[in-house]
Each structure stands twice: as structure tokens, then as C-alpha cells.
């Protein structure tokens, strides 16, 4: 009992480590090259971004279509720390990691704070109106960044130290999954899902919808900010126009094509759709045509996304887990497996 409980919780960690080992092995054998690794890192950042969007759109049922704005705040926030405030040349090697982590935290906090501040007045807006405000927010941030000369204005920032390697990306994706899963299966996640499924009933059942929407928005913005910080330290070069509406709509595509309201869906969507355009490069200018067609066909024929609402076992917490975690059996209550994802 005890052992199996332990095993279940470390299994994903072992799996992830094995995957990382495999990639490194492929790299040392010359099968995977730096280009592949680079794409994998982008995919990791995109997974985090998609999870972040999933919290707001998939679980809370709100429409953010300007999430690139939070990503850019995180990217700039953290890059300013490692590039402008502390110059890479003066940071001693031993301090690189703490500085890097601190910068990610700052990036996340900046994004979260802005998320909180814009959420406060706007989350009362309904559906599409909220969507358009988030779009406006994203574009205002982008145009605003283009105006600030010390951070390179429209030219952007170059020379951001490339601290983020594949191992860091793996770690942060895993942490994000862990945190998002935990929160979804808590009071907070349940409140979000209640608001998503029926806001009037949620309110009538004592759920302060504005408050929980703001929590959702702020949490989501924090993840997006950290992801943005990682991104900056992968590419070494950030520019306001990288975080345009095109970026936001890419993220929406990852989310809904993968399957919104499912963590597995976010992983699959971001991973697949980040690598698909790369894999299609041989098609030259027809590449995005095919990509667009694939997207429309997925939306038309698979409304729940590619994963169809499936959730990997370690990305959900069932009632059985709740009991087994405490070493208890639930003999007196029958347990059926919920077929579709239960969120």
C-alpha cells in the first residue's frame, strides 16, 4: 500500500527523467541535433503557455485572447534583471542559477500583478467583451513596449544570456503540470469549473465568481510570465512584435486543437502543433496552408480536440486517490470510472 502510493507519485518523475535521458542519448549519438533540441525547448515553453491559457479559458470558461501580453511582460521582466540590471558579464558563474531563477520569479510576478490589475475591472464583462479587452490589452502592451527606449523599443533586447537549457524547460513544465493539476482538483479548481459550467448557479451556490475569476486570471498570468522569462533565456533576443496577436492566436489554437479543459490536451496540442510546422518545412510556402487546413479539419471533426477529453492518470486526482493517499479503502462507496475527463 505505502509502496504503491509512493510509486504512483514518482512514476511520472521517473518517466520524465527517462525521456530527458533518451533525448540526451539521441543527441550524443548524433540523431538529434541542436535544432531539434531548440524546437523541443520552444514546445516546452508553449506547453506552459497553453496550460496557462487552459486555466482561464478551459477551466474557468473565460475568453482570454491576448495571453501573449502576459508572456511578453514575463519575458521583458526577467530579461531586464539578467541583461540590464545585472549585466551577464558581471554575474559570477556561481550566481547564474540563482539570478536566473530570481529573474523568472520577477517575470512571473510582474505578469501576475498586471493580470490582477486588469482583471479587477474587466472580469465583470461577459464572454466576448472580455475576449476583446484581453486582445486590446495584449496589443497595448506590445505597442507600449515599442515606445520604451531603454529596453530597445521596437528593436527589442539582444544579448539576453541563454541560461535556459532543456533540463530547465523540463523541470518547469513538470512543475507547472504539478501545480495546475493540484489546484484544479481543489476548492479553487472546482469553483472555476462551476463558473465555467453555469455562472448563475455558481453564484447561487455561494461562489464569489468575480473573486475566483481574478484568482484564475492572476495564477494564469503568473505561469505565462514565467514561461515568457524562460523563452527570453532560450532565444537570447526578444522583441515586442514577437508577442503580437498572432502569438496569442497560436496559443488558442494549441489549446483548442489539443482539447481545452484537459492538461493532456495542452501538452499534446502544444507539442504537436509546435513541431508540425517544422516538420512541414519541406513544403515551403504551402506549409501554413496545410497547417491551416489541418486546424480547420480538427475543429470540424474533433470538437473536443485531438485528445478528446482524455487525461493521463497522473494528471488527474480521482476519488480513489484521495482515499488511497490516506491508506483507506472505500469499500462502502461504489466507484465507477468516469469515462470522459471529469472536468
Amino acid at each position: 500500500m505505502k509502496f504503491s502510493k509512493r510509486f504512483k507519485s514518482i512514476l511520472p518523475v521517473i518517466g520524465l527523467a527517462a525521456l530527458y535521458g533518451l533525448i540526451m542519448l539521441l543527441k550524443s549519438m548524433g540523431i538529434a541535433n541542436n535544432y531539434h533540441i531548440q524546437i523541443l525547448m520552444f514546445a516546452g515553453v508553449n506547453i506552459m503557455m497553453t496550460l496557462s491559457l487552459n486555466v482561464v479559458n478551459g477551466f474557468t470558461g473565460q475568453f482570454s485572447i491576448g495571453h501573449a501580453g502576459f508572456m511578453s511582460l514575463g519575458a521583458y521582466g526577467s530579461a531586464i534583471i539578467t541583461t540590464l540590471i545585472l549585466k551577464p558579464s558581471v554575474i559570477p558563474a556561481s550566481m547564474e542559477i540563482p539570478v536566473f531563477l530570481l529573474s523568472l520569479l520577477v517575470g512571473g510576478l510582474v505578469a501576475a500583478m498586471v493580470g490582477y490589475l486588469i482583471g479587477l475591472p474587466t472580469l465583470k464583462l461577459k464572454g466576448d467583451y472580455l475576449a476583446i479587452v484581453t486582445l486590446a490589452f495584449g496589443e497595448i502592451v506590445r505597442a507600449g513596449l515599442r515606445l520604451i527606449e531603454p529596453i530597445g523599443a521596437a528593436r527589442g533586447m539582444i544579448g539576453v544570456p541563454n541560461y535556459a537549457n532543456l533540463a530547465w524547460i523540463f523541470l518547469f513544465v513538470a512543475l507547472t503540470l504539478f501545480f495546475v493539476r493540484n489546484i484544479i482538483y481543489s476548492r479553487f479548481g472546482r469553483a472555476w469549473i462551476a463558473i465555467r459550467d453555469n455562472e448563475i448557479a455558481a453564484e447561487a451556490m455561494g461562489i464569489d465568481s468575480t473573486r475566483y475569476k481574478i484568482i484564475s486570471f492572476t495564477f494564469s498570468a503568473f505561469i505565462a510570465g514565467v514561461a515568457g522569462g524562460l523563452y527570453a533565456h532560450v532565444v537570447s533576443f526578444i522583441q515586442p512584435d514577437t508577442f503580437s496577436f498572432v502569438k496569442s492566436s497560436d496559443l488558442l489554437v494549441f489549446l483548442y486543437a489539443g482539447g481545452s479543459g484537459s492538461l493532456t490536451g495542452s501538452i499534446v496540442g502544444a507539442l504537436l502543433l509546435t513541431s508540425l510546422p517544422e516538420a512541414l518545412r519541406f513544403l515551403a510556402s504551402w506549409r501554413l496552408v496545410i497547417y491551416a487546413l489541418v486546424l480547420v479539419i480538427v475543429m470540424l471533426y474533433s470538437p473536443k480536440g485531438i485528445t478528446g477529453g482524455y487525461e493521463l492518470p497522473f494528471l488527474r486526482i480521482t476519488r480513489k486517490d484521495i482515499y488511497e493517499n490516506r491508506g483507506k479503502k472505500i469499500s462502502e462507496t461504489p466507484l465507477q470510472e468516469t469515462k470522459e475527463g471529469d472536468v
Binding site: 475568453f63 485572447i65 489554437v253 483548442y256 491551416a292 487546413l293 486546424l295 480547420v296 475543429m299
Partner: peptide, 13 residues
């Protein structure tokens, strides 16, 4: 949202 994402795809096309 499904229609919205489809529209994004159509636009790309």
C-alpha cells in the same frame, strides 16, 4: 470558442 478557433484557421488559410 470552437467557431472562433476555426475562424483563425480559415484566416490563416
Amino acid at each position: 470558442m470552437t467557431a472562433l478557433i476555426t475562424a483563425v484557421g480559415v484566416s490563416m488559410f
